[in-house]
Computed example of a mutant assay.
Amino acid sequence: MAGMTDTHLPDALAEFRDDFLDTPEADRLLLLLEFADELPDVPAEIAAHPEMYERVAECQSPVYIHVTVTDGVVAMHATAPPESPTTRGFASILAQGITGLTPEEVLAIPDDYPHTIGLTKLVSALRIGGMTGMLMRTKRQVRERLGMLPPQR
């Protein structure tokens, strides 16, 4: 399944994509629900400061993200309600796939990544748009943390 877009796709995200593409379409939502259950907890020092979060307006459900860059390593934190498992699954894929990368690796992730994981027929375009929104906002926050952009508030 490797294509030209793989050149900038970090290993974890490529692996997640391949897991979905290797799973029969009928079972892919189950895999997404597994990711939803694995959304990493937000560290207490961030959870205690909801003002640090950015609401992902592209998502119908209340999804919030916060990105840190420490010593050249990105960490993406996300919250999504348990009653929105699809969105929570997308947040989990990105949080797990992005955390631990360098800022350059994050910024090089193809913007169309959410369209490549084999879920476009199974979930609404709105939900794929929500995942794209999470990715774009994560990239923007990385640029802000690096001083490439002024903070948006």
Rank of each mutant, 00 (worst) to 15 (best):
A57C: 00
G72P: 00
T86V: 14
T70A: 12
T87F: 02
G130K: 02
P50D: 09
V56N: 02
Q152K: 11
E144D: 12
P40M: 10
E15S: 12
P150L: 14
G89L: 13
L149I: 01
T70L: 07
F16E: 07
M131A: 15
E83S: 13
T87N: 07
P24A: 11
T7S: 08
P62A: 05
E105T: 00
L31S: 00
G97A: 06
I65H: 03
D71E: 15
C59P: 02
E83A: 12
P81K: 03
T79S: 08
M76S: 10
R137M: 15
Q96L: 11
Q60E: 12
V56M: 02
L119N: 08
L94W: 07
C59E: 03
R88V: 01
T138G: 10
P151V: 11
D112K: 06
Y113M: 03
G129A: 01
M131V: 04
L107S: 08
Q152A: 09
V56Q: 01
D111I: 02
P150I: 11
I117H: 05
L122S: 06
D22M: 01
R153K: 11
E34T: 00
D6C: 02
S124G: 15
K121Y: 13
R153A: 07
P81E: 08
V74E: 13
Q60R: 11
T87Q: 04
S61L: 05
P103N: 13
G72S: 05
P24E: 14
T79K: 10
Q60A: 12
L135W: 06
R140I: 07
L32E: 11
T23Y: 09
T138A: 15
A26C: 09
M1L: 10
D112F: 04
T70S: 10
L101R: 09
T102V: 09
K121G: 06
M4T: 11
I128Q: 01
R137D: 15
A12M: 06
S84V: 01
G100K: 03
E45F: 13
L122T: 00
P110K: 05
Q152C: 00
F35I: 07
R88G: 02
I117F: 10
F90I: 06
L126M: 15
L149Q: 05
L119E: 08
L101D: 09
I98P: 03
L149F: 01
L119C: 10
D37W: 00
L31P: 00
I128D: 02
K139C: 05
S84C: 04
D18P: 00
G133K: 08
G3W: 04
